[in-house]
Amino acid sequence: MADQLYLSLWYANFRFPQLPGALDRVLQQFAALGGTDKVKAATVYPLSWNESPIYQWVHSDKDPEENAEPAQAIARAMEALHEDYAYEFEVEWELWTPSEEGGEEPGWKLEPRVVRVTGFGPQFDEGSFDQNGQIRIDLGTDTPFLQEEVALSAESAAYVKKNVQKLVDLTTLMQKNAGAATRLLWSESGENLAQKLIARLQQLN
């Protein structure tokens, strides 16, 4: 069963007014990984996840003049900083995905996948940022990095390894370029993701 995958980031000596700048640097890293740093959507949640959003913005492909640069999207959503708000931004990166076209042996193609980057106010959801990080990246399910339902040949295995390498590169960039002091890659189920990745890659060798 697919498991939801997250990357949590903590910053040394972090102050809440630094959150917009930190989010900007995080969003910029996806362009370096073959994706885009253009923000597709932004949502602001007050108090907790149980509350309805107080702000939502979705980029329109019909309006190419609409500015989706991270700095502008962040400025709009975070015009007023509230310590009990969470600020979520959607971007995309591309991962290799098996295609059913072409017979028994799966073909592979790069497909965009939505990533949600959320910055937490220190009082949002009773201070859950202690566990989630000042910034949490929701990477979607772990399927692209494991492909447990796919019988892989040596050629196909190379594409899974490319996805795993991109995941490793992402965690590295968050420390090197985005300034995170501590990073934690984790799954919703609590299973040890590193062990699952190692076990799967050993099956592919």
Rank of each mutant, 00 (worst) to 15 (best):
A154M: 11
F120V: 01
W108D: 02
A80P: 00
R113A: 11
R113D: 10
K109R: 15
D142L: 08
Q134V: 01
L95R: 08
F124R: 11
T118F: 05
F124C: 06
L146H: 06
A75Y: 00
A75Q: 12
K109V: 11
L81T: 11
Q147T: 02
Y85V: 09
V117R: 07
A158C: 00
G119D: 00
E79K: 14
I137A: 03
A154L: 13
E90A: 15
Q147F: 07
D84L: 06
Q134C: 01
S128G: 02
P112Y: 05
S153P: 00
S153K: 02
V115N: 01
I137Y: 01
H82E: 15
G140N: 09
S128L: 12
K161C: 02
Q123S: 13
Q123P: 00
M78H: 08
R113E: 14
F129W: 13
A151T: 05
D125K: 12
S156K: 01
E90H: 15
V91C: 08
R136F: 05
R113F: 15
R76C: 12
G133C: 05
P106C: 06
I74R: 02
G107K: 15
G133Y: 05
E149G: 10
V114C: 15
D125R: 11
G119I: 00
G133N: 01
G140S: 07
L146D: 09
E155I: 03
N163K: 10
T141W: 13
P106D: 07
P106R: 09
A158Q: 09
W93K: 05
L146V: 09
T143W: 13
L139R: 11
V150M: 14
F145C: 11
V150C: 05
Q123K: 15
N132V: 03
L81V: 10
K109M: 13
A80Q: 14
L139D: 06
F124M: 07
E149V: 05
V117Y: 09
D138R: 15
I74F: 03
V115E: 03
V150R: 09
M78G: 09
M78Q: 12
P106F: 10
P144M: 12
A86V: 03
R136V: 05
E155P: 00
K109N: 13
Y159Q: 03
G140D: 04
A157L: 08
A77S: 13
V160N: 01
A80G: 03
S99Y: 02
V117G: 05
E104V: 03
D84V: 04
V160D: 00
E105M: 08
S156R: 06
K109S: 15
E101R: 12
R76M: 12
K161Y: 01
R116G: 02
I135F: 04
S156N: 10
V150P: 00
L152P: 00
E126V: 09
V160S: 00
L139A: 05
L95T: 08
W93R: 12
V117P: 00
Y87S: 14
G107T: 14
R136G: 03
L81E: 15
E104S: 08
D142K: 13
T143C: 06
P112C: 09
A154R: 14
